[in-house]
Design a protein around this nucleic acid. Structure first.
Lengths: 325, 325
DNA sequence: CCCTCCTTTGAAAGCGATTACATACATAAA
DNA sequence: TTTATGTATGTAATCGCTTTCAAAGGAGGG
């Protein structure tokens, strides 16, 4: 590939002038500018990225880390972040973490070595991270959970779950079960709180906290339905901590001859595509995922560029009513 | 941040020695090595990425471009690519293209400017790309479709659709409809071919090629079901070009009082999570998505590193039978 | 004891750009 | 005409690292 030197020679100017043409065109005369442009064109010149960032302090790349679940929830966050990053001239490097890949250290290293400028960690609720000494001083923004005092974006789970429970109560449901993963503990706490606040019975037998990761969604829903069928205690509503769980529960209820929502109402969480695709459609809680991604990117980039940023930003959820409840 | 110079001073050696310790430790004595290591540790030294790649020809980053649909199909490809890339020490830069973001040029530029080494384009079937002059000479591997003579990974849609049609015939279905997007034209052609090959009637009224992008899945399925209901010609099976379409079709059939699969069998394509979550589960065609992603990354990285690579690699699909057919 | 060879290290060039500083020339002000 | 000011360009230092080449010192062979 041709370098700035080649262009300089071709255009018969110094390399400084060539550099100016691309970075500060205002200061160079029109005549030279055209000479340089056509030389660059002729040689197919593209400025070398590494050389540039070696002199500049900002690289123009941010890392977005998401858990390794094929969950549209996180994908939308990435999309939002990317949309925004683009407008500020930043690229997105995909990061990942799950039980198998706990690579925070690796990404921190990428930032330290100036391969990227900072990290958005889409943590997900109640996945906890021990502080990492090396992470100090590098720009980080998290989603859903605080991490080492860095800014974060979140939604109020307590309020959301509370709303959905109250919605069910308004529909005359009184025996309400809950299904979620352990990692969604906050949603369970919120559920417990909402139940007792409204003077309903918090029935441990109708509660299940799955232990698993990723693939286990389907099995977990099935086990839940089979368990309540076995003890013969059928709730008139089930609050699920995610839409996929809700879809699974609906599937197994119907398979066992129960009607949704007539016999059992089911609610989800997240409002991903699935919620609309299944029959009956799932009543769920919508979180502004893309916007959360955007905001995370915005905060991060502002931080990178040295501006003062908010400590935390909360977003409102919204109940989307479909047929399942 | 501290540089190689600082470490050199701290360890009382030359910068050349420090560099050797990190790149070619075999040639330096144990004594010096330990001195350098502890100096590096003490100063929190991380080699600067840009400086390094300015001297080396390989950056260690590949771009994976996917269409901007929240489709787990593409996400799995990215995951596969990332899994593999990691083992070779490469990172993934997220690229994107859709009607709104046709940014191939931008990514090509990233490669030309040595911010990345090459591109995996997860094109998707029958999305066509006009050749791009600038793309010449840069390492590219595509998925599902050939592009400018570059290597590509694909599955045989013809065979897959043919198999699914024959499976339906074996289940005594004879009036078979098709629903797909325009972009899935090859699957439609394959469908047509399979129908006529088996001496069934290819009935235009039972075929719908949606025009839309992204969000339109749900509406498209609904329109299809309403259309066949209106003309009163109910097929005994519907082949859908994707699982989300199939889920939508099932939903609307059930809503209109039809039974799946008793009245109408429905098949999908891709075997994404949804296929298992809905009731009835969707009989579909599985593509080895992650593996395709891996292979794409492998081909690309080999190409980047100057090895000879295959021209194209085909993968086998597999029918996953569930309840919907 | 001298010569050769090997191991270990340092000096310095160069990768491709940005940018502070200097210079040259033209123009406006005195 | 002389001086001050501004515009356009060039020179050279610098960013952090890799790598070639050379040199120093020790070990082994004759």
């Amino acid at each position: 590939m041709s370098s700035i030197k080649d262009v300089a020679r071709e255009a018969q100017v110094s390399i400084a002038t060539v550099s100016r043409v691309f970075n500060n065109p205002a200061v160079v005369s029109n005549q030279t500018k055209t000479r340089v442009y056509s030389a660059a064109e002729k040689l197919g010149y593209t400025p070398n990225f590494s050389a540039k960032t070696m002199r500049k302090s900002i690289v123009g790349t941010i890392i977005v880390m998401i858990p390794d679940i094929s969950n549209t929830f996180f994908i939308d966050i990435v999309r939002g972040a990317q949309d925004y990053a683009e407008t500020r001239g930043y690229n997105i490097l995909m990061g990942r973490f799950d039980i198998h890949h706990f690579d925070l250290q690796k990404y921190i290293k990428l930032v330290k070595s100036k391969a990227a400028d900072g990290i958005v960690m889409a943590i997900g609720h109640n996945r906890h991270f021990a502080p990492v000494a090396e992470a100090k001083g590098i720009p980080i923004v998290t989603i859903e959970e605080e991490f080492m005092g860095n800014p974060y974006i979140y939604v109020d789970n307590f309020e959301a779950i509370s709303e959905i429970v109250e919605y069910l109560i308004s529909k005359k449901r009184s025996q309400i079960g809950f299904l979620g993963f352990k990692s969604e503990r906050e949603r369970l706490l919120a559920f417990k709180n909402a139940i007792t606040k409204n003077n309903l019975k918090y029935d441990e037998e109708l509660i299940k906290k799955g232990d698993e990761f990723g693939e286990a969604v389907y099995a977990s829903a099935r086990e839940y339905v089979e368990a309540i069928l076995k003890i013969g205690k059928i709730p008139d509503a089930v609050v699920c901590a995610s839409d996929v769980l809700a879809a699974g529960v609906i599937k197994w209820l119907i398979k066992n001859g129960l009607r949704v929502p007539q016999d059992v109402a089911v609610t989800g969480f997240d409002n991903i595509e699935v919620a609309e695709l299944v029959q009956p459609g799932i009543t769920t809680v919508e979180q502004p995922r893309e916007i959360m991604g955007r905001e995370a990117a915005r905060l991060l980039i502002n931080k990178i560029e040295g501006h003062e940023v908010a400590k935390k930003i909360a977003f409102q959820t919204r109940i989307v009513v479909r047929e399942s409840a």
